[in-house]
Computed example of a mutant assay.
Amino acid sequence: MAYKLLKSLEVVAISVLFVILQNWANAKPQVPCYFIFGDSLSDNGNNNNLSTLAKVNYSPYGIDFPVGPTGRFSNGRTVVDFIVENLGFTSSMPPFAESQGENILNGVNYASGAAGIRDETGKHLGDRISLNRQIQNHKIIILRLLRLMRNNTETRLLLNQCIYSIQIGSNDYINNYFKPEFYGTSRLFTQMQYATLLVHQLSNQLKTLYNTGARKFAVYGLSLIGCAPFAILEYGTNGSLCVDKLNNAAAHFNERLMPLVDQLNNDLPNAQFTYLAPAPDSTTFVTNGSCCTIGGGGGELCLKNSKPCSNRRRFIFWDGYHPTEAWNEKVAERAYSSESSLEANPFNIHKLAKL
Rank of each mutant, 00 (worst) to 15 (best):
residue 147 R to W: 04
residue 67 V to R: 14
residue 141 I to S: 07
residue 134 Q to G: 05
residue 31 V to Q: 01
residue 182 F to I: 03
residue 331 V to W: 07
residue 91 S to E: 11
residue 346 P to L: 05
residue 60 P to Q: 08
residue 131 L to K: 09
residue 83 I to N: 09
residue 213 G to Y: 10
residue 222 L to M: 13
residue 310 S to M: 09
residue 119 D to Q: 11
residue 66 P to I: 14
residue 11 V to H: 13
residue 330 K to T: 07
residue 299 G to D: 03
residue 252 H to W: 15
residue 48 N to K: 03
residue 79 V to D: 02
residue 105 L to V: 11
residue 288 N to K: 15
residue 192 M to E: 15
residue 259 P to D: 13
residue 239 G to P: 01
residue 71 G to K: 14
residue 309 C to I: 09
residue 227 C to Y: 10
residue 69 P to S: 02
residue 327 W to C: 01
residue 330 K to E: 13
residue 236 G to N: 06
residue 167 Q to M: 10
residue 243 V to W: 11
residue 105 L to E: 08
residue 182 F to G: 03
residue 112 S to N: 11
residue 44 N to V: 04
residue 29 P to A: 04
residue 186 S to Q: 13
residue 309 C to V: 09
residue 353 A to R: 01
residue 21 L to W: 10
residue 75 N to F: 03
residue 1 M to A: 08
residue 340 S to Y: 03
residue 262 D to T: 10
residue 304 K to R: 07
residue 212 T to Y: 12
residue 153 T to P: 01
residue 263 Q to Y: 14
residue 220 Y to K: 00
residue 339 E to P: 00
residue 257 L to A: 07
residue 343 E to H: 13
residue 54 A to V: 04
residue 151 N to G: 06
residue 59 S to F: 12
residue 138 H to F: 14
residue 214 A to N: 04
residue 312 R to D: 04
residue 150 R to E: 15
residue 127 D to F: 05
residue 196 T to S: 15
residue 101 G to M: 05
residue 298 G to M: 02
residue 41 L to Q: 11
residue 294 I to Y: 01
residue 212 T to M: 05
residue 64 D to E: 14
residue 30 Q to L: 15
residue 60 P to R: 14
residue 262 D to M: 06
residue 57 N to S: 12
residue 167 Q to F: 09
residue 86 N to M: 12
residue 47 N to R: 10
residue 248 N to D: 08
residue 101 G to H: 09
residue 94 P to K: 15
residue 254 N to L: 07
residue 343 E to A: 14
residue 226 G to L: 10
residue 225 I to N: 01
residue 347 F to N: 03
residue 144 R to W: 06
residue 348 N to D: 08
residue 350 H to G: 00
residue 128 R to L: 09
residue 26 N to Y: 12
residue 131 L to M: 13
residue 28 K to M: 09
residue 119 D to A: 14
residue 310 S to H: 13
residue 337 S to T: 09
residue 291 C to P: 07
residue 282 S to L: 03
residue 217 F to K: 05
residue 252 H to P: 00
residue 307 K to F: 10
residue 221 G to N: 15
residue 351 K to A: 10
residue 325 E to R: 01
residue 245 K to L: 11
residue 38 G to Q: 03
residue 282 S to R: 15
residue 255 E to Y: 12
residue 191 Q to T: 10
residue 229 P to M: 04
residue 12 V to E: 15
residue 65 F to T: 15
residue 300 E to G: 02
residue 307 K to D: 05
residue 107 G to D: 05
residue 154 E to Y: 08
residue 71 G to N: 11
residue 36 I to V: 14
residue 70 T to V: 15
residue 60 P to Y: 12
residue 234 E to C: 02
residue 137 N to P: 00
residue 162 C to I: 01
residue 109 N to R: 05
residue 51 S to H: 12
residue 107 G to T: 08
residue 55 K to V: 00
residue 173 Y to E: 10
residue 97 A to C: 14
residue 270 N to W: 06
residue 299 G to F: 09
residue 20 I to Q: 06
residue 351 K to E: 11
residue 214 A to R: 02
residue 264 L to C: 00
